[in-house]
Design a protein around this nucleic acid. Structure first.
Lengths: 122, 122
DNA sequence: ACGCATACTTACCTTTTTGTTAGTACTTAA
DNA sequence: TTAAGTACTAACAAAAAGGTAAGTATGCGT
């Protein structure tokens, strides 16, 4: 839970209001969101599929990050009234609109990593 | 200080190895780095200038994030042997190479924020 | 009656990030 | 001799993020 009156929370809020990039980081940042987003760019997936696709996520974290993505309107959660239950996650239009940004970050990250490796190897 | 053997640290490390985007987030993420980077895109700045330009940063945080940016090779720190001391921070070539990515994130963030406002007003 | 499968939820704990406060070194100007 | 300016550093505290383990609901097959 968040403390609304901490300096920490106030600093975050004021930056989110003033800086689009910080805002973007808030929406797509976090330990597991990049991986989730890249998975969903391939197409819709069920909860357990995601869990198997993403090595290392705990259930708590996976659910939490999916919920945040949903709150921010990037992901749609479709529940089918079946037993055993079936829940599919897919990107919304807004979710798909992040693709160029994600690609940009991914490319930059990969380039930068390669540079580091080259330096390390020399 | 980091615990190298925590699950937390291991998860982070393995994601950084496999996902360029997570890697990029690691380099440009954090509460104050977006603001610092945008400030330095305008040109070199002294420590106190940065501090005055960025409302709300504590000295500890400003120094910490500048050091991380330096470690990752995005920022160069120039110390002039004068009294009172003068230290100038500027982006390296690698730092400047982040500009398209930063712009992309900033644009997406601003667009997304506007959408939320429109929804809130309706 | 019992276990299985799915998609979670809950309580609790550890790790990491961020913030607060006070202090350092050096020289010049009043 | 004392304060001011610059660019920090260190010790400590609070908040947020992340991880662990156990439990929930439902209906089907055996």
């Amino acid at each position: 839970m968040r403390k609304q009156d901490s300096t920490n929370a106030r600093n975050e809020a004021s930056i989110l209001r003033n800086c689009g990039m910080a805002y973007a980081l808030n929406v797509i940042g976090g330990r597991w969101k990049p991986t989730i987003l890249f998975s969903l760019l391939e197409g819709k997936m069920r909860y357990n599929e995601l869990r198997k696709t993403i090595p290392g996520v705990s259930e708590r974290m996976l659910v939490a990050q999916l919920r945040e993505l949903e709150e921010h309107g990037l992901v749609r959660r479709n529940v089918f009234p079946e037993v055993p239950p079936r829940v599919e996650y897919e990107l919304t239009e807004l979710g798909h609109s992040t693709e160029p940004m994600l690609q940009c970050m991914s490319d930059w990250g990969n380039m930068h990593r390669k540079k580091e490796q080259v330096i390390a190897v020399q």
